[in-house]
Design a protein around this nucleic acid. Structure first.
Lengths: 195, 195
DNA sequence: AAATATATTTAGGCAAACCTAAAAAATATA
DNA sequence: TATATTTTTTAGGTTTGCCTAAATATATTT
């Protein structure tokens, strides 16, 4: 399993939730910052190897085996993100790029020991659940801040926009994971305030 | 700088101590478990890029720039080995293969933070010195156990043979880093005993 | 010094992963 | 439905890093 193959499987995993009939070549290419022709080539190979189901012009979906690989990579990614944030003083917006590299390290013992060292965390610093060794993922009910009404309160469990600028903005506002957010007033043009 | 290029520079660094006039193509090929033709190709590229001095048929040596890269990779390798051994319960003989992968992760902040997290270690679990950020390496006077005379005492600071079987043998004999070794009796056929 | 042996380089190939440009299929529009 | 547009695939190239086999240079023997 090469780095590139792992990245394809991980990307298909993320994208197939929104396109359950098949992830299109173009969408995948854009997500991977690659070209459609490269994607066609790779998913044909992944199909031959038995990780995905690919039907020309119909898009691609993971099968059981591909999903297990994707979940293992995601597990590693999120464990490393947790390590970087909790043990190494990395800030929210710095962990992703490094975890993107660390997730490809091959060593079952390493995953196991890292998990133990971190105290078997269930969620990463972005609030996303960490799949367990068997590939099971805990689902959390999430609401968008925009869905909250004035007076309502929620706990920040994650973010959708992971751009550096947005994460830095949150740090500046002292909004972290677990921070309670209360909508004090809602302007007509959608303006909310935090407590 | 690719993984492969880093491995070449690291290998040349290790080998050039014993062949200060130039590391031969064949020796390098054997060390890297590769073939002479592949080595010739790569060192020509590294020469063009300005990391080594290569003269056909005369072998290859690192220049300043190549040495700095090699030392940085070695620094990362040894910091990761320290991490695996001290924080993740990896045994002496298990750390090398994983560190071999981790040493190629690219992030200056990661090295810095890992160093701090480990308490700025000066030596790795094998007793080898960890180069500092500037590439300076502490030299330790080492003696071979075979150079000690009966009655003399020394402290174990490292091993030369890093094979699994030998490291397991040492574990079994309860010989660790820092273990004091005293030669009690020396048989004619070179047989020593520990205290 | 000539012949043989060894080490090194050159030449030509291969697989992975990417690319552009052209062809073909699917979808949308008139 | 026929035409135009978009999406996807195919065909042909490129780079990196590896290989084998053949050619060439160096080293060792005799």
């Amino acid at each position: 399993m090469t780095f590139s193959e792992e990245n394809y499987l991980k990307s298909i995993y993320s994208l197939q939730k929104d396109s359950p009939k098949g992830v299109s070549t173009n969408v995948l290419a854009q997500y991977l910052e690659s070209k459609a022709a490269s994607v066609t080539e790779m998913i044909k190979k992944l199909d031959e190897k038995g990780f995905v189901v690919y039907q020309p012009y119909q898009g691609v979906l993971l099968n059981k085996s591909g999903e297990q690989v994707a979940l293992k990579v995601i597990r590693k990614h999120r464990l490393w993100e947790t390590f970087l944030a909790k043990k190494l003083d990395f800030s929210w917006d710095e962990i992703h790029d490094v975890a993107e590299q660390l997730e490809h390290i091959k060593s079952d013992k390493l995953i196991k020991e890292l998990d133990r060292f971190l105290g078997f965390p269930t969620h990463d610093p972005h609030g996303d659940p960490i799949p367990d060794e068997l590939g099971n993922v805990i689902k959390v009910e999430k609401k968008q801040v925009s869905e909250l009404l004035p007076g309502e309160t929620g706990t920040c469990v994650g973010v959708n926009d992971t751009s550096s600028s947005f994460l830095q903005f949150l740090d500046q506002q002292n909004i972290k994971l677990g921070t309670e957010i209360k909508i004090i007033h809602l302007q007509d043009f959608d303006k909310s305030m935090t407590v």
